[in-house]
Amino acid sequence: MEIKLEEISVVYARGEAPLKALNKVSLTIRAGEAVALFGPVGSGKSTLLQVMAGLLKPTAGRLSVCGQDGPVVLAIQEPQRGFFAATVREEVAFGPENLDLDPAEIEARGTGALTAVGLAREKWEAPPQRLSGGEQRRVALAAALAMKPRFLLLDEPTTGLDGPGEEALRQTLQRIKTEWALGLLVASHDPDFLYMLTDRVLVLVGGELRADTTWGAWAQEAAAVAPDLQIPFLLGLLRRLAEAGAPVQAAPATPAAAWEELFRLRREREKGGAG
């Protein structure tokens, strides 16, 4: 299954000066991929996600979803804003109910999704409003997963989370990514969160797709394409080390390889220092 965008443009009529939110964006993502949608605040990321989820009709261009074997589900920024049910369980069941499934299936999906996001069982009957910010984020994720999406689109999922909350979310997403075999598209302005989670990066600046590449390659070309954008801290560090003459590879393919480079450098230095 894949989602294909061809020359998608979105223009918001706003008073006398219409706002071009997206300008001729073309791309394809496939189920099983983990993709980052990276760009500054207000660069059109939310609009692009809404178009992909079929919630917003583009002004121009074509959206095609081939091989429909599951829904495309979007979790908006701060998804707890949509909570309305009396218990967490009912909140999570809302999506599957809208898909007209039978009660046993709805129940099973709710259990599966809540287990997958690792929310403690004693919280399942609690009102979602009473949970902490981190727990609410898990409930929202479970509500999306219960719809068995083929593509899961997340809009700025770290907004309002603190360090531990962000780390827990990253681990949960990492697990879901491998176990649920879905396509994951995460929009964020934070390159470090995205880097640890995704392999491919789409860079959106001012409604235009500036790059569609790997993180390693993006770190190399970022300065030329969008100098105002940060690159992941680890890649920036390796770059700086390489410039200082250290024997490291400046653009490793994965975060694991990046860490390996750093540990290797450290081991060699220690050895050199001792000898």
């Binding site: 603190d162 360090g163 531990p164 801290f233 680890l234 560090l237 750093l262 450290r266």
Partner: peptide, 15 residues
């Protein structure tokens, strides 16, 4: 539950 500067985090992970 406090976030450290990224450089500090990496330094601490590298020992």
């Amino acid at each position: 539950g406090i976030s450290l500067p990224p450089a500090t985090q990496v330094a601490s992970a590298l020992g």
